[in-house]
Write a protein that binds this DNA or RNA. Sequence first.
DNA 1: CACGCTACTATTTTT
DNA 2: TAGTAGCGTG
Length: 690
Amino acid sequence: MSAELFPERDRTVGARRTPSYVEELNSAQHRAATHGEGPLLIVAGAGTGKTRTLVYRVAHLLDQGVAAERILLLTFTRRAAQEMLSRVERLVGSRSRAVHGGTFHATAHRILRRHGEQAGLASDFTIMDQGDAEDLMQLARARTGMGEKGKRFPKKETLHALYSRHINTDEPVGALLRAEYPQFVEYEADIVTVFADYVQRKQERNLVDYDDLLLFWATMLEAAPALAERIAGAYDHVLVDEYQDTNLLQARILRGMCRTHQNITVVGDDAQSIYAFRGATVRNILDFPQQFPGTTIVALEENYRSVQPILDTTNTLISRAEERYTKQLYTKREGGDRPWLATAQDEPAQTRFVVERILELHEEGIPLAEMAVLFRAGYQSADLEIELAARNIPFEKWGGIKFLEASHVKDVLAFLRVLENPRDEVSWYRILLLMPGIGELTARAAIDSMVRAAWHHQAFAEFAAPSRARDAHRSLVQLLHALRDAPAEGEGVVGTQILTIRQLYDDILRRKYDRVDPRLADLDQLQTIAGGYPSRAAFLSALALEPPQGTQDLGFDGETEDDILTLSTAHSSKGREWDAVFVIWAVDGYFPMSRSLGDPLQVEEERRLMYVAMTRARNHLAVSYPLNVYDTRRGADYSLDQLSRFLDRGVRDTMHRVVVEPPHDEVSAERNGPMEIDLRAILKGRFGGS
DNA sequence: CACGCTACTATTTTT
DNA sequence: TAGTAGCGTG
C-alpha cells in the first residue's frame, strides 16, 4: 500500500529485499553495520549480537554495490565462517555466495595454491597438521644428534610449540626460552640447529606447516610488491571476526591486505581472548586504533542472550580482570534464576548431579540440543561420557582427541601421503615401521637409499631389503604399485584407494591393537569421508585444514539422533550458546589449570576462559565441583579440592548454592546395616588394582 | 637387528 | 591412560 502512495520514497530506500536495518538492529549495531569506509573496531561483549552485526554489515556492503567476490571475511574457526556465510545468504540471497569467507589458514592455503609458484613454492605442496609437524621435528631432533643430550633436551612437542611461537610472535627464540622454558636456555644454539634442520627438511620434502601458511602469506604481502598488489588487490573490504584471538603475524597479514585502502572491520571482545598459548595477543585489539589511524570504535553492550542473574555473575567474574575495554553488559531479559553452584562429594557425584539435572530440564521441555556441558580439558568429561552412554543419553563431543590424531587413521593416511608426495619422509618412516621385519634401522636405510636415488619412482622398489624384511618389502611395493595404477580422479577414487590399503593394513591393525573394532569403524568412516572428494590431493588438503569432528568410542551410530547433548571444551564453546550450560570441574588446579598458576597472565587467560564458558548460557547455568578427587598423580589417595579461585566471595554471592545428595546405593547400604565385606574391592584387589 | 615386555611419565586449549 | 623409552631375548 504505502509503496503505491509513496513510490519515490520506496525507490530511495533501495531494493525490496533490503533488510530493514533500523528495525532489526539496535542503534550501536546499526551504526556498525552501516559504517562507510575506513577502519572500524566493534567491541562486542558476549551475547551482544556480534555475528548478527557482522552479517548485516556484509549485507549492507552488498547493498551499497560492493561486489561479493571483493569482500573477504576472515574468521577464526570453520564453524564461524560457515555460520556467518549462511546467515548472510539467508538475509540477502544467493548473490552473497561469492563472498570469500574462511579461516586465516584456509584463506592462506587458497592464496598459496594460486600465487605460491611466483614465490618459489611448488604448487603441489602437502600441508602438515600439527602432529605431522611434530613428527618432522622429531626427525630433525634425532638426525641432528640433539636428541641424545640426555633427558633434558626438549621433546618434539615442546620444540614445535616453541618454533610455532617464534614464527607467530616474532619473538627471538632466546627470549621465548627465558620466558617460557628457562630449563632449556642452555640449549638455545642446539635448538636453533634443530629448527634449521626442520626448515630444511620441510623444504626438501615439499611440506608446508600451519605456520608457513600464514608466514608465506604475510611475506608475500610485505616483500613482493607486485604479488602483494595481486593478492591484496582482489579485495575492497576485509572483515575479521574474533579479533582478540589474532596474533602478530595475522595482524601483519591484515595490514598487508589493507595497504591500498583502509576498509577493515574487526570485531572482538578483549574479555574473551583465550588463545595466547598460540601466540594470540590481546594487544592486537587494544592497539587497533593506533595501528589503523582514524578508527571508528563502536561498543556493543546490550546482551540478548542471558537472563540478568547470569549476567550479574559473569559481570562480577570478569570485573576482576586487569586491562580491558570496560563494558558493563546489561539485558532487558527479565526474570530467570541465579546460576547454581553445586558442591559434589566426588567425581561420580558430580556426574550424577549433571546427568540428573539434564534429565530434569529435559522433562521441563528443554531439548538436549539446547544444553551443553563445558570443561577445561578434553579428558575431564570421561566419567560423564560413560554415564551418559549407560543412560542412553545421546551426546556429541567437541574438542578433545580428534579423529585424525588416532594413530590408526594416521597410518592409513601415511600411505595416501606417500603416493601424493613421494618425498614425504615422515609418512615413509611411519609406513615402514608398520611392516613386520622392518625396524628403525631398515627404515632409515630404505629412506637413505631413496634419497640417494633422488626419490626416483622406482627408488623404493630398488631398495635392497635385508632378508627378514623381504616379504614386507615385496608386499609394500606391490601395494604402492597397485595404488599408483589406480585412477587418480573421479567419484569415489580415494575411498577405493583406502580400501586397497586396508587389504594390507587391517591385518597390521589387528596385530598392533587390542581393541580392534572401534578402530576398524574409524577406518570405515575415513573411507566414507574420502568418498566425497574428487582426488587424493583435495582430500589430504581438506583433512589438514578441515578435520572432521568424528568421535570413535561411545558414539551413537545407527539411527541418527537429532536431539543431542553437547559436550565441549571451553575453548571450542566460543561463539556458541545454549539454553542450559553446565561448567564442571571448577576446581583450582583444573580450572584454572595448575600449570598456569605460576604466571599471572596465564591465570588471567584462564579467568577469561571461565568467563567465555559461563557466558554461553541463556537461561540456566550450573557450575559444579567435586570436593574429593581420586588422583593418581598426587598419590593413591583422595585429596581435598578447593573451589576455583575465580568463584570468589563476590561471585558466589550472586549464585545459588546446591549440595549434591549422597548416592543412593550408600543410602541403601545404611538401611541394611554396615558393610561386612566389600566384594568389589576384593575383586579389584586380585589385580593389584587401586 | 627386530620386537615384545616393562617401567615410566607427562597430561590444555586449536588452525 | 596411553604413548614411549629402555632393556633383554631370539
